[in-house]
């Protein structure tokens, strides 16, 4: 990372901002919780009757209990791992496939590139949430399938962004020089193109992670995620929302967790993209 940052010529004199540093800390905390979760929680997240139903927050149950008397704190903490893991897995998959495709297209150019780019445009002009709903309702809703669905929906978007970035690089003379040296496609893509779009790829990765977490959460909230006992944030919000009049906490805790995570990802992305001279996660990407 530091290497990536120091290499960019435009970042001289730019420092990470306060919000960026805060976001990085928050993200680190989320990762730590995701890894150490099982050792941190006082209760089994699925244990019914850890307390009375709808207990308010106390020292024993920091976020209260839900309709089955399960400990909300434990459920939120354990849910962190799944939220991060599914989000990162879906994004990672999409970014790997999309980057490879985008770079290859930019290098290849010509007819193949034009045709594949049009196909990507067609894929992108399908409403993602509705396609995801359909796919999940048809193929089933286990986490692996949800991850795969989101990855398939995001990959063409990543490919388009990376291709656009790489197209400005392939016309540079150092790529021509590599071509004249007789370098192979793989060498040109890896040595000449990838290092110069690494910033774009990174920004794309972190933006998409935010979106993936939101989208997987949306699916789970709509009831197309993991089955009920699972401590998944979206599902918890859904369940808690049904009984929001009885207690506030079963909804608030997972909602706040998701909000914090997504805001942290976005602030972090914003700062990194500013540092490496990108326009930031504003351009329309929905």
């Amino acid at each position: 990372m530091t290497l990536l940052l120091s290499a960019a010529p435009r970042n001289i004199g730019r420092r990470p901002s306060l919000t960026g540093g805060f976001a990085a800390l928050l993200l680190a905390a989320f990762f730590a919780i995701a890894i150490a979760g099982p050792w941190l929680v006082p209760f089994d997240p699925a244990a019914i009757g850890a307390g009375m139903p709808f207990e308010p927050p106390s020292w024993q149950h920091p976020f209260g209990t839900d309709n089955f008397g399960r400990d909300v704190f434990s459920r939120v903490v354990i849910g962190t791992r799944q939220a991060l893991a599914t989000g990162l897995a879906a994004t990672g998959l999409a970014v790997i496939v999309g980057t490879a495709l985008g770079l290859w297209l930019a290098h290849r150019r010509g007819i193949v590139d034009e045709i594949v780019a049009r196909i990507l445009d067609v894929l992108i002009s399908m409403p993602p949430l509705i396609m995801a709903l359909l796919a999940v309702s048809v193929f089933g809703s286990n986490p692996a399938l949800v991850v795969l669905t989101v990855a398939v929906l995001f990959a063409p978007r990543v490919a388009r962004v990376v291709r656009a970035a790489a197209l400005t690089v392939v016309t540079e003379d150092y790529v021509t020089a590599a071509l004249l040296r007789g370098e192979t496609t793989l060498a040109i893509v890896l040595r000449e193109l990838l290092p110069n779009v690494a910033g774009t790829v990174f920004v794309e990765f972190s933006i998409r992670t935010g979106y993936a977490i939101v989208m997987i959460g949306s699916l789970s909230f709509l009831g197309f995620g993991s089955p009920p006992p699972t401590p998944e944030w979206g599902l918890m919000i859904n369940e808690g929302y049904a009984a929001v009049n009885a207690s506030f906490w079963p909804v608030l805790a997972p909602t706040a967790a998701m909000a914090l995570l997504v805001i942290a990802v976005n602030l972090f992305t914003d700062d990194v993209s500013r540092l490496i001279g990108h326009s930031g996660p504003v351009e329309a990407r929905r």
Binding site: A177, L180, R191, P195
Partner: peptide, 18 residues
Amino acid sequence: RRRIQIVFQNPDASLNPR
């Protein structure tokens, strides 16, 4: 490839910044 070489107009674009 070896015996013919080219030097380009703009040195900013002809050297890989990375």
